[in-house]
Simulated scan of single mutants.
Amino acid sequence: MLLEKKNAVIYGAGGAVGGALARAFAREGARVFLAGRTRSSLDATAEEIAAAGCQVEIALIDALDERAVESHANAVVRDAGSIDISVNAIRIAEPGIYGIPVVGLSLEKFALPITAYLRSHFLTTRAAAQRMSEQRSGVVITITGMPAQVATPGAGGVGVAWAGIEALTRGLAAELGPLGIRAVCLRSNAIPETTVIREGYDHRAKATGQTREEVQAAVEATTLLRRLPTLVDLANVATFMASDQANAMTATVANLSCGFLAY
């Protein structure tokens, strides 16, 4: 198994993306520590993982709370001995921050995702990196989307935040590489299985008089593979990047665009 004897902390593990990664890591032998703000969704993911005979723990954590993040990281190390993998898969779901032209946004709505995403990623990556530095090994994984790289109307502050996360990932890689710690990012195209993408397609469909399926088909037609990535695709790549098979990879952004980005 790719992640046998690894301890993985997944923030935002109650969401579609975080849950998919947690299940994939567990299947590959990792002991997974699920962190999030919603008990019901964390419990559902944990029950599925436990039913498969895998090791899982949950904790109610606000990834924007410095004290909570630090306390949880200490608890994981006390319990498991190390943090080998750290993933931040949180989602800022505040209405009115996405799908609106920049000139139509208030300062607060523009700044909210920038402040929240970067604060959370700073806190979680710092917590992991400090513990990993002591053991001189580990992998920090971040997740962004196409607006970090591609000119995207309606991305507002989200694209700016994701670009900042990618810059943070590269900076971490530069600082932590000599200690044997890798930092990598996964930049995914839209994943139709997620709530935010379904809602976005519904909104676009209503505005254009199309069906959600027609909107999705139009987006798929822009990719070389004529499809969009799935949660399984993302989880498979994340598992590989977290494993020792990717030991030569750091300071990089994996392209999961299905060929929308061709470089």
Results as ranks from 00 to 15, higher is better:
residue 12 G to S: 04
residue 233 D to G: 02
residue 1 M to R: 08
residue 162 W to E: 09
residue 255 N to A: 04
residue 11 Y to L: 10
residue 254 A to N: 04
residue 42 L to D: 00
residue 245 Q to M: 10
residue 172 L to K: 09
residue 255 N to T: 07
residue 156 G to S: 04
residue 207 A to K: 11
residue 180 G to I: 13
residue 260 F to G: 01
residue 2 L to D: 02
residue 203 H to W: 00
residue 40 S to V: 08
residue 130 Q to S: 11
residue 122 F to C: 05
residue 167 A to N: 12
residue 199 E to T: 00
residue 228 L to G: 02
residue 28 E to C: 01
residue 20 A to I: 04
residue 211 T to P: 06
residue 158 V to P: 05
residue 41 S to N: 13
residue 262 A to G: 14
residue 32 V to T: 05
residue 24 A to L: 09
residue 31 R to H: 15
residue 3 L to A: 09
residue 255 N to Q: 06
residue 196 V to N: 00
residue 57 E to H: 11
residue 34 L to C: 00
residue 176 L to T: 06
residue 67 R to D: 03
residue 222 T to S: 15
residue 143 I to D: 03
residue 101 P to K: 04
residue 133 S to F: 02
residue 189 N to F: 07
residue 257 S to T: 13
residue 65 D to A: 10
residue 221 A to V: 14
residue 258 C to L: 01
residue 169 T to P: 02
residue 27 R to H: 08
residue 181 I to V: 13
residue 61 I to M: 01
residue 239 T to L: 11
residue 116 A to W: 03
residue 10 I to S: 00
residue 152 T to D: 03
residue 73 A to E: 05
residue 38 T to Q: 13
residue 190 A to G: 12
residue 109 K to C: 02
residue 168 L to C: 11
residue 232 V to G: 06
residue 244 D to Q: 13
residue 113 P to A: 03
residue 105 L to V: 14
residue 214 E to P: 15
residue 47 E to L: 12
residue 217 A to D: 12
residue 185 C to T: 09
residue 125 T to F: 15
residue 217 A to C: 11
residue 47 E to A: 13
residue 44 A to D: 10
residue 61 I to N: 00
residue 178 P to I: 03
